[in-house]
Simulated assay, not measured.
Amino acid sequence: MNLDFKQNFEHLFEEDLLNEIEQFGIFKEAEAGEELIDIGTYIEYMPLILHGAIKILREDEQGDELVLYFIEQGDTCAMTITCCLGKKKSEIRAIAETKAQLIMIPIEKVGSWMQKYHSWQSFVLQSYHERMKELLEAIDTIAFLNMDERILKYLKDKAIANKNETIQVTHNQIALDLHTSRVVVSRLLKALEIKGEIMLQRNQIQVLKL
């Protein structure tokens, strides 16, 4: 098991649970852009993130994607929790936003530890609560924000997830993630630059006001 594991989770879990995670968890490294979970597949493991960030997306009937939220170090994904416990197919796609290190928890342990360890139950419920808040924020963003505000929020969330105010992203990728057109994205990015919110570079954007 990765040496950083206990440093990341010893404040959350008791020693017996930490030992079980070391015993049954599977360490995994993912490159940026690597798909970890696909829509329509059965989830066999729940990820705990040691380092890096994961992007969670939904897909419509036409195959267009929309970014819901990012999960970072010390987090897990509520959508995988519900699929794990209900033994249902995944309704989300998870892609490594950055190079990431994870511990994959077998689904049979996800449920049994809920009854065995209070700290695990609290962690799962708190994680679920946090992800639901982010889902509501995503809904509010779509429903109530103008597209320029949506783009700025997306860039700020991405910068925070990457822990870098300068992010590697193309106009086309932003358009795909926000389910809009590249022409609209390019026009609004230029307007945001004029307002002093961002600085545009080739395939890079610097967020000036995090």
Rank of each mutant, 00 (worst) to 15 (best):
N2I: 07
L3N: 10
D4H: 13
F5T: 06
N8Y: 12
F9D: 01
E10K: 04
E10D: 07
H11S: 09
E14I: 11
E15M: 11
E15P: 03
E15G: 03
E15Q: 13
E15H: 11
D16H: 11
E20N: 12
Q23S: 14
F24E: 04
F24K: 05
K28N: 01
E29P: 04
E29Y: 03
E29T: 13
E29C: 06
E31D: 07
E34A: 08
E34T: 11
E34Q: 12
E35I: 12
E35F: 10
L36V: 05
T41H: 14
I43K: 08
I43Q: 07
E44R: 08
P47S: 10
I49D: 07
H51G: 02
A53I: 02
A53M: 00
I54P: 07
I56K: 05
L57H: 13
D60N: 15
Q62I: 01
G63D: 05
G63P: 02
L66N: 06
V67E: 11
L68T: 08
F70G: 01
I71W: 00
E72P: 01
D75K: 11
T80M: 04
T80R: 02
L85R: 05
K87W: 01
K87N: 14
K89T: 14
S90P: 03
A94I: 05
I95W: 06
K99Y: 12
I103A: 01
I103Y: 08
M104A: 11
E108A: 02
V110L: 08
M114D: 07
Q115S: 10
K116Q: 15
Y117P: 04
S119A: 09
W120H: 04
W120Q: 07
F123W: 10
V124W: 05
L125T: 15
Q126N: 12
S127K: 01
S127A: 06
Y128W: 07
Y128T: 12
H129K: 14
R131C: 12
M132N: 14
M132L: 15
M132V: 11
L135F: 10
L136N: 15
E137V: 08
E137M: 07
A138N: 07
I139D: 15
I139T: 15
F144V: 04
N146W: 05
N146Q: 15
D148F: 03
E149S: 09
L155S: 10
K158V: 03
I160T: 08
A161C: 07
K163M: 10
T166L: 00
I167D: 01
I174F: 11
L176Q: 13
L176A: 10
D177Y: 08
D177T: 04
L178E: 06
L178C: 02
T180F: 02
R182M: 01
V183M: 09
V184H: 13
V185K: 09
S186H: 03
L189T: 02
L189H: 09
K190Y: 11
I194M: 09
I194L: 11
I194A: 12
K195F: 03
G196E: 06
M199R: 15
L200T: 02
Q206H: 13
V207P: 00
L208G: 07
